[in-house]
């Protein structure tokens, strides 16, 4: 990263700390917001948060590594997460998984070369009455069919 980008990130983080406060209980909201804006929380961001909250960077990393939604690696523009828990499984999530893999040309756990799409499984989304369900970033899509998935992907372009 360029020096100027780093200092931009530092400014952004100090604004977030200003907004949420510098107590330990603000750690998660701050990390969640960084995650939402950047798609991941870089090592540098973790250190900067630690510095401003006056806690050890290992503490921050311990929190980041605990929560499934907080990521350290760069993620794609569209992070697609398909629910794999029982009710979606019964509602034929397998056909959706197959469609996603075919259309994106990647397997679950992978990112497309152009970093536009990443594909993951997720546990119960609470959409069990409208399965199969998936999230694209924070948006929820329900009652999926292979056709519907193709349409949704088309509309992302």
């Amino acid at each position: 990263m360029l020096g100027s980008e780093l200092s931009d990130l530092n400014i952004e983080i100090s604004e977030l700390v200003e907004k949420h406060g510098n107590g330990r209980q603000s750690l998660l909201p701050i990390l969640q917001e960084i995650q939402k804006r950047h798609g991941h929380i870089s090592g540098h961001a973790q250190q900067e948060v630690a510095r401003l909250l006056d806690i050890h960077p290992v503490e921050v990393n311990g929190v980041v590594s605990f929560y499934a939604f907080l990521k350290t690696g760069i993620r794609a523009k569209y992070n697609i997460r398909l629910c794999k828990t029982i009710s979606c499984e019964l509602a034929n999530k397998a056909s959706i998984a197959k469609t996603l893999e075919r259309e994106l040309g990647i397997k679950f756990g992978e990112v497309t070369k152009d970093e536009r799409y990443s594909l993951e499984y997720i546990n119960c989304l609470g959409m069990c009455d409208q399965g199969p369900a998936m999230l694209i970033n924070n948006e929820v899509y329900t009652s999926l069919t292979p056709h519907k998935v193709i349409e949704i992907l088309d509309n992302l372009k």
């Binding site: 330990r24 209980q25 603000s26 998660l28 995650q35 929190v63 605990f66 929560y67 499934a68």
Partner: peptide, 21 residues
């Protein structure tokens, strides 16, 4: 942030306090 165990009340409180759940 995507952790089922945080529904358990004491884990939830840990999470609210900014810790691992």
């Amino acid at each position: 942030s995507g952790a089922y165990v945080c529904g358990e009340e004491s884990a939830l409180i840990e999470s609210l306090e900014g810790n691992r759940g």
